[in-house]
Design a protein around this nucleic acid. Structure first.
Lengths: 325, 325
DNA sequence: CAGATAATTGACAGCGCAACCATTTCTGCT
DNA sequence: AGCAGAAATGGTTGCGCTGTCAATTATCTG
């Protein structure tokens, strides 16, 4: 039995006779042999891995997305290689470099805004690239997301239609995706003849429940609390709910609160949180499926853009504006 | 300029003269050269990567833990390789095999219960191994966690001291960590002369807000709702809070609710959730630090076990038992 | 049963880099 | 100027596996 036969037995068990396969299996388990993937990758020029770049691991949004990617990629015998860009374009560039060094066969990346060098790296790597979550006017390869700005418009209009004139926008560090929602907010406000700037409240921290509390304090410090608050995500909204209650303000009586993403807990807050439901799982699943297809049939041209949509979910935390005393 | 000099310039820029380094840098960026890590790993027999195995990505607990691991490992020039075992011992074994195939230099793994084959693999790999979250009587290498069973005892005793006689235990799929907490609950109940079995309610689904709702429905279906509910985590507790409210039960008036982990939102629920705070970030940070140290000074014997502790955080969702009508 | 085809097994070279050692160039000193 | 020693650079080899093609053995057909 030669080395090459063992190699084959490991990769394509069908092409080796049953008894040889058995003796190889027993030998491997008694010796505790573990094939060296680095050597395999070098020799075959195939890494069987896909790079996945997310801005943070500390967010359920991306956890669901990653879970979906894993569930699609693993059965296709592709190992996801998850790297965290920590919301930094420079770190993202480093991450891309690292992944390309690993010779990943494709890259799935959150966002469409990269450093020029990063973009060049992705373009010249000649591998499938999927940009996700945000819509790109000029995608590198494929693009999966939904109209974040339109979601911002719809959400703001919904509050305007409830009669609100002063609508706050609460957000922490403004990344690409937050910025699109903010654009939508501004557009809808302007369109309704309302001030699109005055009620935007922001802080450089990452969005979190605690930040929601802090943002409401900031709003209160500035003067009257608007009659509605559009929060960048459900965590901030939950914090806002809490801070408003602490200040003796009722929701939605005094203030309406609107979140974003429809996280697990949104239906269970008090009052139940109105929000915009987004499809994180589907985004990841689609991105991974498109990657697998692109790898399995490189030539074929298919749809480059997929919209996973969103849905306004009105619950109890938003209500009609009432005349201020 | 020879290939080997370039190789050196890339790895140890200090050992190469400045002007040569410059010309190499420009050449690399014009050519778009990206070193092949597989070849580097093969030649140097160093992978510069550390395997990290978690049961799921879809849980903030592990997200914080992973974030901490990343923050420690990356500056030490070690690439974390995160693999998801999907709460399955078999999948975990496959994950270990995959990681060893990549020749990871160490493995950080959640839990201490593995298949015999998996344990053998870890033992014979001769690399640092850190088992986390649960305490092991017989660790493979290092072990970081806290006394989960004692936390279960403390939490249950706290409810007993509030005068509760009927204390429900709500849990989904019972993994190693849940099982230790359940053990603690049983012990404390027995010790107080209370029934340690009757009020344990479980379902095979993964713990989530939705499951908390379902578990309370199940509890109600079985008869009287206990005067206190010890929930396996804060998500389940949040669902329980919601379901109790829907059924017209007040918290903590009719029912006290206790969570676990002290997630972000726990202080902001209505009423604020009493819970047991755990140190996920510290667990990950310590695990990664011990890994780095073990890799940098292989011989030295150091402490194998670290306790990151826990802390009971009483808030508004628990209160004294009142006489039932 | 010869000959042909299919199934199985083996030999060899090379993937791209880094360890090791050899060589060249530079520096400071008498 | 001449030399020792340090600094910088280069040559050779092999890491462990797989692609390609060749050789062997089993199986089938008329």
């Amino acid at each position: 039995m030669s080395a090459i036969t063992v190699s084959r037995a490991l990769r394509n068990p069908d092409t080796v006779s049953a008894k040889l396969r058995n003796s190889i299996d027993t030998a491997i388990s008694t010796l505790g042999y573990v094939p060296n993937l680095a050597a395999s990758r070098l020799a075959s020029a195939r890494s069987h891995s896909v790079g996945v770049i997310v801005p943070t691991l500390y967010n359920v949004i991306f956890a669901e997305y990653l879970q979906a990617i894993h569930e699609v990629l693993l059965p296709a015998r592709l190992q996801p290689l998850v790297v965290n860009s920590r919301y930094s374009a420079e770190a993202e560039e480093v991450a891309i470099r690292t992944l390309l060094g690993q010779r990943v066969e494709a890259i799935i990346i959150v966002g469409t805004e990269h450093t020029p060098a990063a973009r060049r790296l992705l373009e010249t790597a000649h591998i499938p690239v999927v940009e996700t979550f945000a819509r790109s006017a000029n995608p590198i390869g494929m693009n999966i997301g939904f109209k974040l700005d339109q979601a911002g418009i719809d959400a703001t209009r919904y509050l305007i239609e409830l009669g609100h004139k002063e609508i706050g926008f609460l957000v922490g560090a403004i990344d690409e995706r937050a910025s699109h929602r903010l654009d939508g907010y501004r557009l809808a406000m302007k369109e309704a003849g309302l001030d699109p700037v005055r009620h935007v409240v922001t802080m450089p921290e990452l969005n979190s429940v605690g930040l929601g509390v802090a943002l409401v304090e900031e709003v209160a410090k500035r003067g009257t609390v608007p009659s509605a608050l559009f929060c960048i995500d459900d965590n901030v909204a939950l914090g806002a709910l809490h801070a408003l209650r602490s200040r003796g303000l009722t929701v939605p009586g005094d203030v309406s609160v609107l979140g974003f993403h429809d996280l697990d807990f949104a239906a269970c807050t008090v009052p139940a949180l109105s929000t915009v439901a987004t499809n994180r799982y589907k985004t990841g699943a689609l991105a991974a499926e498109m990657t697998v297809k692109a790898l399995n049939s490189p030539g074929s041209k298919r749809r480059k853009w997929h919209d996973v949509g969103y849905r306004l979910v009105p619950r109890a935390s938003t209500g009609p504006a009432r005349a201020r005393v």
